[in-house]
Amino acid sequence: MTTIRQQAEVPLSAAGRRFDQALAEMFPAYSRSRLSGWIKSGAVTLDGATAAPRQLLRGGERVELDVELEAEVHSQPEAIALAIVHEDAHLLVLDKPAGLVVHPGAGNPAGTLLNGLLHHDPQLAELPRAGIVHRLDKDTSGLMVVARDLPTYTALVDLLSRHEVERQYEAVVLGTMVAGGTVDAPIGRSMGDRLRQAVRDEEDGKRAVTHYRVRERFRAHSLLQCQLETGRTHQIRVHLAHIGHPLVGDPLYGGGLKLPKGASDGLIAALRGFRRQALHAERLSFVHPATGEALSFSAERPADQQALIEALRADLAEHGSEPW
């Protein structure tokens, strides 16, 4: 169990302000809700005595934090292989394979990335979601960042909320796209299927923005580079399907199997055999919350997506730009 012990003096500029409001500014590494809970439990004292969150300050008081972090995650550790790209005392970056679920849930109570993280570092149980600050869908591969302490977790969540974490993806989609662009369309849960997300109006959906550009064009497909400005559930999958170019292999939003005219047996096999969305989180960049260092990581596309792209290239080389 981790113990947090910190002391500080309330600045004179905080005179007349509420205790919980001033505390959030004095200890920005911790969330307002967490600090408020600590005040109520007596883990944060003011001049050696407990105080109410709404107590007004005069400035100059002594604040002391003496907190025992209890387990927030009760899943069991499991020895699951993790492809760790970077690790230090504050965070780790890993390359998640397609097929690995991130969080335990209905139908997946164990065998998840979270279980593997708890085996790798048992102290992650003291953090919300075991330090996982963003997620990838089960069948999306690529880079994720995980916090290893509470201040880093809070800081990374803040960076994500301010769109200061660059997340770049590679996608293979149906149809030949002429140029890149931006999809700016709110996303919310589908009214007809709780497993799906959908483009909704501004009242029902949350703002979602995806930028994309074309890397390669094939006879009936395109290879895209996508960057998230926001991070909604299934965002890239929903947005690209919305503009008529769903991801190859996407079981929820895909447009089914589309074969170019005269497709070779190799391409037919590659397309039929690709049974997940063709989406890979290839680059992740952010400023390290503890050191201030600008970090950037990349992950090679997985073998199945590489094989799919090679089959599409071979088809294009054989047929040229012949219509499909």
Rank of each mutant, 00 (worst) to 15 (best):
T3P: 08
R5H: 06
Q7I: 05
V10C: 04
F19S: 08
D20S: 14
Q21M: 09
E25K: 09
P28M: 10
A29K: 09
R32E: 15
G37S: 08
I39W: 14
I39M: 09
S41T: 13
G42A: 14
V44T: 08
D47R: 11
D47F: 07
T50C: 02
A51K: 11
R54T: 04
Q55P: 11
R62K: 15
L65D: 05
V67I: 15
L69M: 00
E78T: 06
E78F: 04
A81Q: 14
E87W: 02
D88G: 09
V93T: 14
L94D: 00
D95Y: 05
G99T: 06
V102L: 12
V102S: 07
H103N: 15
P104F: 03
G105W: 04
G107Q: 15
N108L: 02
T112M: 07
L113G: 04
N115W: 05
G116K: 07
H120T: 00
E126I: 01
L127F: 07
D137H: 01
K138R: 14
K138Q: 06
D139E: 13
D139Q: 09
D139M: 08
L143V: 11
R148Y: 00
D149T: 12
L160N: 01
R162L: 12
V165T: 10
V165D: 10
A171P: 01
V172T: 15
G175I: 00
M177W: 13
V178M: 05
A179Q: 10
G180H: 06
T182W: 03
D184I: 09
A185P: 00
P186G: 02
Q197A: 01
V199C: 06
D204Q: 13
K206E: 03
T210D: 08
Y212T: 10
E216L: 03
R217Q: 11
F218I: 01
A220L: 13
H221W: 11
S222D: 02
L223F: 02
L223R: 10
E229W: 10
R232C: 10
H234C: 02
I236V: 06
V238M: 04
L240E: 09
A241R: 03
H242F: 07
I243D: 11
V248Q: 09
G249P: 02
P251R: 14
P251M: 02
K258G: 02
P260S: 08
P260M: 10
G262V: 10
A263M: 01
A263S: 12
G266W: 06
G266A: 05
A270R: 12
F274T: 03
A278N: 03
L279G: 05
H280L: 09
H280T: 11
E282F: 06
R283L: 07
L284A: 13
S285A: 06
V287L: 09
H288N: 06
T291F: 12
T291L: 15
T291A: 01
A294L: 03
L295I: 08
S296A: 02
A299F: 00
R301Q: 04
P302W: 08
Q306M: 01
E310G: 10
L312S: 10
A314S: 12
D315L: 09
A317R: 05
S321Y: 08
E322K: 13
E322M: 11
P323I: 12
P323H: 03
